[in-house]
Design a binder for these strands. Structure first.
Length: 482
RNA sequence: UCCCCGGUAGCUCAGUCGGUAGAGCAAGUGACUGUUAAUCACUGGGUCCGUGGUUCGAGUCCGCGCCGGGGAGCCA
């Protein structure tokens, strides 16, 4: 309204584009004395016998609500304003003034308060102005973004997503939109969700009695992707620097605070890059994300520091400055063997590291992120590049305290004969990987990439301990409501 | 999927030895106040997760199921 003058009136009562963002008002972009209009949802109402009510209005543009002063002589004061409760939608127009009270610099002295949407039963409104458990809030996922915590998570999530896109764009990486539907039934990362239009109750049959997928939509079995990596490798060997960023699906029956059936993953792939370069990129990406977050969402981070994880800001500040520790698997085994404590799973070379081992390394030995590199080939995927020692592959995991594995990646096996030998060794069907093998036949080059679990990253930076609370509508085993 | 713990008012929880249920917050009403998720008083509010069983009697004990939490596995 500051910039648009009387346009709001011209556009009519339901006009939405003329309101000022509360974040802009509280950010000092509008000087006291100006007329402003805000629209949002009531957080709290406090009445004063001094002849006014205080109404905290929140529009989601930032963490803080705006304090509205509603004088009792407003025409709808007794009938409407005095009955506002948490969740009511309002539009308020008035003069921005320096606050007469403590706790805020400015407040809005209302000249007009329109109630756009009432809460029809305040007692049962699920989001009371009180503390709620995250477990409960998951049961009202459609309303939980109105809370401080989940609203802050949503803004942090968007901030980090933008930081990721910026990071890659500035380094000459191209965003590749790899397919969600895939026919690769063995991408090497867990069980898949089937995609089909066949009648589940009465599918067409082959002569042998099996399901006749030739009659299915794509004429073959298809699934939701578990990773864009294989596809993005094709674009990597043409555009050199590429990445995917999108949803990923895993039908694993995982019931933990770190797993979702539908989650978002960032997967860069770099041509002519080796494993150390890959690790450098991973470290730079995480640091760029953390820096952007501290810079752009100080309000939300202050909240997380106050209510969720008091160390979250200083942790990020420190991580940004300190180089990530690199540790070869061989050395990690040595470290664990000399840890001076016993583990449930005894430490020996060749074992896959258990959670307790990863936790010791990142939380106790390093005290921050650590990049573990060069694992035994037996415990890693077929596409990872065989090292010259013949016993390890150029794989890496980035482990962080509290979460564990936040990034998993590798240099890819670019030598066709070595890849084929690996496929044979694992009894995998080479013809099914025809197009993937082609990439090794036609101008193959060394290349490397990794997958960053986006929700794990959001969880790590905010201190929100369950990934189900950092994605808008979580999907997990036996849970796909909303 | 496995191990452990839990499910009681809108929310967070207490509930003794098996005898038909309570607090705080929220909500409503009032008082008070330039208040800060205000304070004080009063009021309303219950399918004790579901199901089967034991018992004269089950929130309480037992079986099964569902949901949630912590840990593990899988992984990002």
């Amino acid at each position: 309204m500051v910039d648009l003058g009387g346009v709001a009136e011209l556009l009519g009562a339901d006009c939405s584009m003329s309101a000022n963002a509360i974040a802009a008002i509280l950010g000092g972009q509008i000087a006291p004395g100006q007329r402003v209009s805000v629209q949002g949802w009531v957080r709290t109402r406090r009445d004063s016998k001094a002849g006014l009510s205080f109404v905290a209005v929140h529009d989601g543009s930032g963490f803080e609500p705006l304090q509205v002063i509603a004088p009792a002589d407003l025409p709808n004061y007794a009938d409407e304003i005095a009955h506002l409760t948490a969740g009511c939608a309002v539009r308020v127009t008035g003069e921005l003034v320096a606050s007469a009270g403590k706790g805020q610099a400015v407040e809005l002295r209302a000249e007009r308060v329109e109630v756009i949407g009432w809460v029809d039963d305040p007692e049962s409104y699920p989001i009371a102005p009180k503390a709620h458990s995250f477990e409960y809030l998951r049961t009202v996922a459609h309303l939980r973004p109105r809370t401080n915590s989940i609203g802050a998570v949503a803004r942090v999530r968007a901030c980090l997503a933008h930081a990721i896109q910026r990071f890659f764009h500035e380094r000459g990486y191209f965003w590749v939109h790899t397919p969600i539907i895939t026919a690769n039934d063995c991408e090497g990362a867990g069980s898949l969700f089937r995609v089909s239009t066949l009648d589940l109750l009465n599918p067409p049959r082959t002569a042998q009695g099996g399901v006749d997928f030739d009659r299915d939509f794509f004429g073959r079995e298809t699934f939701l992707t578990v990773s864009g990596q294989l596809n993005v490798e094709a674009y990597c060997l043409a555009l050199s620097k590429v990445y995917t960023f999108g949803p990923t699906f895993r039908a694993e029956n995982s019931n933990t605070s770190r797993h979702l059936a539908e989650f978002w993953m960032v997967e860069p792939e770099t041509a002519f890059a080796d494993l150390p370069a890959n690790a450098d990129l991973a470290e730079a990406l995480l640091k760029a994300m953390f820096e952007a977050l501290l810079d752009e969402r100080a309000d939300d981070m202050a909240f997380f520091a106050q209510r969720i994880d008091k160390n979250c800001i200083q942790r990020l500040e420190r991580i940004i400055q300190v180089p990530f520790k690199r540790l070869d698997y061989d050395d990690a085994i040595q470290v664990l063997a000399r840890a001076g404590r016993s583990f449930e799973f005894p430490v020996r070379w060749g074992m896959d590291l258990q959670s307790e081992h990863e936790r010791y390394l990142s939380e106790n030995y390093v005290g921050g992120p650590v990049v573990l590199m060069n694992y035994p080939k037996e415990i890693k995927s077929f596409y990872m590049r065989l090292n010259d020692d013949g016993r390890t592959v150029a794989a890496m995991d980035v482990l962080v305290p509290g979460i564990g594995e936040i990034i998993g990646g590798s240099q890819r096996e670019e030598r066709l004969e070595v890849l084929d030998a690996r496929l044979d060794e694992l009894g995998m069907n080479k013809t099914a990987y025809g197009w993937y093998r082609d990439l090794r036949r036609y101008g193959s080059v060394p290349h490397a990439g990794f997958g960053l679990g986006f929700e794990r990253a959001v969880s790590y930076v905010t201190g929100m301990s369950n990934v189900r609370d950092v994605i808008p509508f979580p999907r997990s085993p036996r849970s796909a409501e909303f």
